[in-house]
Amino acid sequence: MKHSGIRVENLMKQFGEGDNAVSVIKGASFEVEKGELAALIAPSGAGKSTLLMMIGCVLEPSSGKIWLGDTLVYDNNWSKADTRALRREKIGFIFQAHYLIPFLNVLENVSLLPLTNKQSEEQATQISSEFLTYLGLEEKLHAMPSDLSGGQNQRVAIARALATHPEIILADEPTAALDIERAHSVVKLLRDIAKSQKVAIIMVTHDERLLTYCDKILKIVAGKIETIDNRDFEEGQNNPVI
């Protein structure tokens, strides 16, 4: 049985009006199931960030539908006026840089969102510690982000994205600031997380070497999405379709 993490139907985004109107996304439809890692690829300016912002409930689409898990969150209107609450409850974000809050330690960075979601301090600390331990950071719980390496910080950012048990994780070029070795380990980690935490992950990347770890490739072509199944290919072997 399929467990949809995210489903998008005929999503469109147009900027401007009349003659000045520019359509960036022109009817994108795709689905990423829970447990899948999907790569979103396209040349610069093709609409990756726009699509990511729409799925992330940051930018309102012009039309279309978005499901996060079983919830229809957008159907020509947001289902919840407070899109920030939607993001907090259903989406985890990972960015190009770790963007941890510099004045909070590792544990506080991760537990901030669960606490905001009205979890008790004990619960939030426990969940956060578990994720940080899972990501090999049990020794660094009380370290400040400035005391960690880039790879460690990115793992803290992943723990932060996981801490609220989101339906999906949106990773915007999470390996952009890492060397290739660390980039590989982070993407492998994302794939393992997708499987073990049963979460759908969409990762924007420009690095084709990392696509081998992905279950799906979402390619933006002329404002639409071409979905390429990547599961039949062995690790380290590129899909010839790309």
Binding site: R84, I91, I101, T116, R160
Partner: peptide, 16 residues
């Protein structure tokens, strides 16, 4: 500002 944008994006309410 960058941290504030991140906080708003990940869902930290304005109130906080």
């Amino acid at each position: 500002m960058k941290e504030i944008s991140i906080m708003k994006l990940i869902g930290i309410p304005n109130r906080m």
